[in-house]
């Protein structure tokens, strides 16, 4: 039996977590990213399960600190953050709302079907839509961009360089 009061508290925590953003892509909340796997109450303790996006993502530590801060501000004093590695995070967990926010921010959102995640060299690139002019006529500049989650593209029509949130 779940206590009604507990249920309300858990709902409140989810709403609070909506306000924690990714320091590297500040338009995305951690719920948009899909990295919060579970919220649970163990008596007075709040336990948050987080699945990191990338093994070496420097934002993970900052996100954990921010979660603690915002929960403390809202009166939750005992907070435990558990890193849950399995199943591994995938860009498929990003919310549709998150993808729209990314595009509005100037980053091409990840495609839902992961078709370039294979080791073969010089694969035919996916057509990535330019977030500025919506043209699909773009080219890959580098598989590695300004952060671990992005690849660098350039639009052949409006000539703007842009980031693509690559499939993982």
């Amino acid at each position: 039996m779940i206590d009604l009061k507990d249920k309300q508290a858990v709902n409140k925590i989810w709403r609070i977590l909506e306000t924690v953003t990714d320091p590297e892509v500040p338009v995305l909340s951690i719920l948009d990213l899909g990295i919060v796997r579970n919220v649970q109450l163990n008596g007075d303790e709040v336990e948050i399960y987080i699945t990191p996006t990338y093994s070496g993502c420097p934002a993970t530590d900052a996100i954990n600190t921010n979660i603690r801060m915002v929960l403390l501000e809202n009166g939750f004093s005992t907070i435990k953050i558990t890193q849950q590695l399995s199943p591994a995070w995938t860009t498929d967990w990003m919310s549709e709302k998150g993808k729209e926010k990314l595009k509005a921010y100037g980053i091409a959102p990840p495609h839902s079907k992961q078709i370039v995640c294979a080791p073969d060299s010089f694969q035919k690139e996916e057509a990535i839509q330019c977030p500025q002019c919506n043209s699909y006529n773009s080219r890959l500049v580098s598989q590695f961009g300004s952060t671990a989650c992005k690849a660098l593209y350039q639009c052949n029509d409006c000539k703007e360089p842009f980031d693509y949130f690559k499939c993982h």
């Binding site: 990338y54 093994s55 590695l85 399995s86 591994a88 294979a118 080791p119 060299s121 598989q143």
Partner: peptide, 27 residues
């Protein structure tokens, strides 16, 4: 081993990009 399995599954996605990048450069 669940933890080993989880770390490897995560890392494999990253390594896939490393293989692509380095093999393209070898070529």
């Amino acid at each position: 081993d669940d933890q080993l399995k989880a770390i490897a599954a995560k890392a494999l996605k990253e390594v896939t990009y490393h293989v692509r990048w380095s093999s393209e450069w070898v070529i």
